[in-house]
Design a protein around this nucleic acid. Structure first.
Lengths: 124, 124
DNA sequence: CGGTATCCCGGTCGATACTG
DNA sequence: CAGTATCGACCGGGATACCG
């Protein structure tokens, strides 16, 4: 890869894999939503139940992820209205990252237990 | 009035690997900084050169990552002042995630070339 | 060289209310 | 059920200036 990152990262979107991925994961809920969809389609209110998140925020994140091509939205109109979100092919490929995150995250959680985060309170 | 304000999802930090990792990666520059350190220690101004980032922002991110235990800071006082940042053991383990991100990021970049992002105008 | 301190802006997120 | 609309708080991050 290029060693010199030139500008505010944004111009490297679509060029540098790290900057590009960072942009996708920037939202507070992106990882969690993608993880929830990793095992199959999930409906809007089901996501709302599983993740503690404001409705508007969820709606925004879903629209964003859909626009970026990672998830897609399918509406079923038979009977009661039903909307399901699922991973797209490129979204499914993201599972590799999710798995790496899960593994490292658990290692880090173990690490935290033996290495408590340093106190922030300013002791005199 | 020193009530601890817990934001949504914070209660899963240290429990859910996804929430935990998300918190670490939240900063705009975290992934890029960790990537820069993946091949060995780097000095402050060298980071500043490689990533175009405001000095204060870099300083903050480095302090944050240090506090979270992913990187450590070593000061050399012989001759001119020199400060090197490097991955800690738990930080080194993060390379797995970085590799997954690189692979997926490149796949996603390829995807973008054949599937231009629909720039839905922000309903302005 | 390797930082702090400060100010300010814009975006994100959350709460609430409303809609088809 | 599955959203939209609106508003406001918070804070990350950029610019700039200064410090040891």
């Amino acid at each position: 890869m290029n060693e010199t990152v030139r500008k505010q990262g944004d111009d490297l979107f679509g060029i540098c894999p790290y900057v590009t991925t960072q942009k996708i994961l920037q939202g507070k809920w992106a990882i969690l939503i993608l993880y929830q969809l990793a095992d199959g389609p999930v409906r809007f209110n089901e996501l709302l139940r599983r993740i503690e998140i404001a409705q508007g925020t969820l709606s925004n994140q879903l629209k964003y992820l859909e626009r970026e091509g990672l998830i897609h939205r399918r509406v079923y109109t038979e009977g009661t209205l039903r909307v399901e979100y699922a991973l797209t092919p490129i979204g499914e490929k993201f599972r590799t990252v999710l798995q790496a995150i899960e593994v490292w995250g658990n290692e880090y959680i173990s690490y935290l237990k033996t290495n408590p985060v340093q106190n922030i309170n300013p002791e005199g």
